[in-house]
Simulated scan of single mutants.
Amino acid sequence: MKNLILLSSFFGITLSIIGQLFGVLTDFFIPGIARLMGVLAGILVLLSLKSRNIEMQAFIVGSSTLLGIMGAGFLYFPAAIVNVLIGFKLNKKLKDENTKKQI
């Protein structure tokens, strides 16, 4: 899962920076600034590595996906797809943990 988190962070940060670089060439100023939110979302995914709580990791990954799509738009979709895969893995871990608690 660590590899997926690093891949998602890489996609989110690099694609958002590429969008920022090409956004500077337009006359419209707001999309260039908003793509920085995609970079922040990519960094936010890295924070899920520090958390040991599975629910908190799921919240961080979900928040990162939402923030990235709002900030970078379609440029963040590769990272969002990887975030969805991370969410499925976290959901599976959470179910396994809950069944162990019940036993």
Rank of each mutant, 00 (worst) to 15 (best):
I17L: 15
S48A: 15
L47S: 11
I43K: 04
S48V: 11
L6I: 14
F77T: 03
P31T: 07
T14F: 14
V84D: 00
G38Y: 01
I5S: 04
I30K: 09
L6Y: 14
M56S: 13
F59R: 12
L75V: 00
A34M: 15
L6R: 13
L25G: 13
I33N: 06
N98D: 13
A41H: 02
I86C: 08
L75T: 00
M1R: 10
A41W: 01
Y76I: 02
N91K: 14
I69F: 01
R35I: 06
M37C: 10
Q57V: 09
F74V: 07
G32A: 10
L85N: 05
G73D: 04
F88I: 14
N91T: 13
I33D: 01
L47M: 08
Q57C: 13
S51T: 14
I54Y: 07
F29W: 12
I18E: 02
L94C: 02
S51K: 14
K100F: 05
E97S: 14
S63Y: 07
K50W: 03
I60C: 08
G68A: 01
S51Y: 08
I86T: 06
F59S: 08
V61Q: 07
A79C: 00
L94G: 03
V24E: 09
R52M: 10
D27S: 14
N98M: 15
L75H: 00
V82A: 06
K100T: 07
G42E: 06
G38H: 06
I69A: 07
A79L: 01
L47I: 10
L36F: 11
S48W: 07
F22P: 03
G42I: 08
M1A: 13
A41Q: 06
S8A: 15
Q57N: 15
M56H: 09
L44P: 03
K101W: 09
K2G: 08
L6S: 04
T65Y: 02
L90E: 09
L15D: 03
N53M: 09
K92F: 06
K95Q: 13
F59E: 07
G87W: 08
G87Q: 13
G42N: 11
M56R: 15
F22E: 10
A34S: 12
K2Q: 10
L46Q: 06
Q102K: 13
I33T: 04
L75G: 02
G23L: 04
L66M: 14
G87P: 05
T14I: 15
T99E: 10
T99F: 04
L67F: 02
I33R: 10
L7R: 05
A41G: 05
V24Q: 12
P78G: 02
M37F: 11
L67S: 07
I69K: 05
I60N: 06
I54F: 11
F28L: 12
A79Y: 00
L49M: 12
E97A: 15
A34K: 12
A58E: 10
I18V: 14
R35M: 13
R52C: 02
I18W: 03
S9Y: 02
A72M: 05
A34R: 13
A79P: 00
I5M: 11
E97P: 04
L75K: 00
L75S: 03
L85A: 14
K93I: 09
N3Y: 10
S51G: 03
N53P: 10
S8M: 06
A58F: 09
L49H: 05
G87T: 10
I54D: 04
I13K: 06
Y76W: 00
L66Q: 01
K2V: 07
S8G: 15
V24W: 08
A41K: 02
